[in-house]
Simulated scan of single mutants.
Amino acid sequence: MRLRWQSLAIPVLAGIVIVFLAWSAGPGLLGSVSSGGGTVTEATVTTPAACSDPNPTETVEFSSGGQTRTGSLDACGHDKNNRVEITVPAQAGAGPVAVHLADVVVGHSDLRRPVGLALLALSCLGGGAYAFLVQRGGRRAPALAS
């Protein structure tokens, strides 16, 4: 059975469509969306939280605008008096502030999106190679003589 290029057109087009749809879905699919802003600062954990808690929240103290502020950090596993980098929202009002770790804050995606798209394209390529092998047929390699 001869393999024709038309038999591989569907897997190739499907792979292209999948990568295009993932790219056009926006930055939230494979990486974080951009943040509303904030200031990265160093904080001290005052009340640690165990990671076995259902919704762990640690209490931190940080300096903002020359004042010592208290914030609730959505993290776990730190010891008391550990220093962590946090992102304080630009619109932080009075009282306790909800803060996030600086390296996991929304908008800090680095290479997640391009690497995710590259891996998606490679998986589409792998699917196309599998379709090629299925279309090629069940030719088996000759058995080795013992």
Rank of each mutant, 00 (worst) to 15 (best):
M1K: 05
M1R: 03
M1D: 10
R2G: 12
R4Y: 13
R4P: 04
R4N: 13
W5H: 08
Q6A: 11
S7N: 06
L8F: 07
L8K: 02
A9N: 10
P11A: 04
P11S: 06
V12Q: 06
V12E: 01
V12S: 07
A14Q: 06
G15W: 07
I16A: 11
I16K: 01
V17K: 10
I18E: 00
I18M: 11
F20E: 09
L21T: 06
W23H: 15
S24K: 12
G26W: 09
G26C: 04
G26E: 09
G26F: 06
G31N: 08
G31C: 09
S32I: 01
V33N: 12
S34R: 11
S35T: 07
S35R: 04
G36N: 11
G37H: 04
G37R: 06
T39I: 13
T39C: 05
V40S: 00
T41H: 06
T44I: 10
T44G: 04
T44S: 12
T44F: 04
V45R: 06
T47A: 12
T47E: 14
A49L: 07
C51D: 11
D53W: 09
N55S: 13
V60L: 01
E61I: 13
F62P: 00
F62Q: 00
S63Q: 13
S63M: 10
S64Q: 15
G65Q: 08
T68W: 06
G71S: 01
S72L: 15
L73G: 03
D74L: 14
C76K: 09
C76W: 09
H78M: 12
H78I: 06
D79N: 11
K80Y: 11
K80H: 10
V84Y: 02
V84G: 00
I86M: 04
I86T: 03
I86E: 03
V88I: 09
P89F: 12
P89V: 04
A90F: 03
A92P: 02
A92D: 07
G93M: 04
G93T: 02
G95F: 03
P96C: 03
P96D: 02
V97M: 07
V99S: 01
V99F: 02
H100Q: 14
H100V: 15
H100Y: 13
L101N: 07
L101R: 04
D103G: 01
D103V: 10
D103H: 00
D103F: 07
V106G: 14
D110P: 08
D110C: 06
V115M: 14
V115N: 08
G116R: 05
G116W: 07
L120T: 02
A121P: 03
A121V: 07
S123H: 04
C124K: 05
L125D: 00
A129N: 05
Y130K: 02
L133P: 06
V134Q: 12
R136A: 13
R136F: 08
G137C: 10
G138V: 04
G138L: 05
R140V: 05
A141P: 05
P142K: 10
A143S: 08
S146P: 10
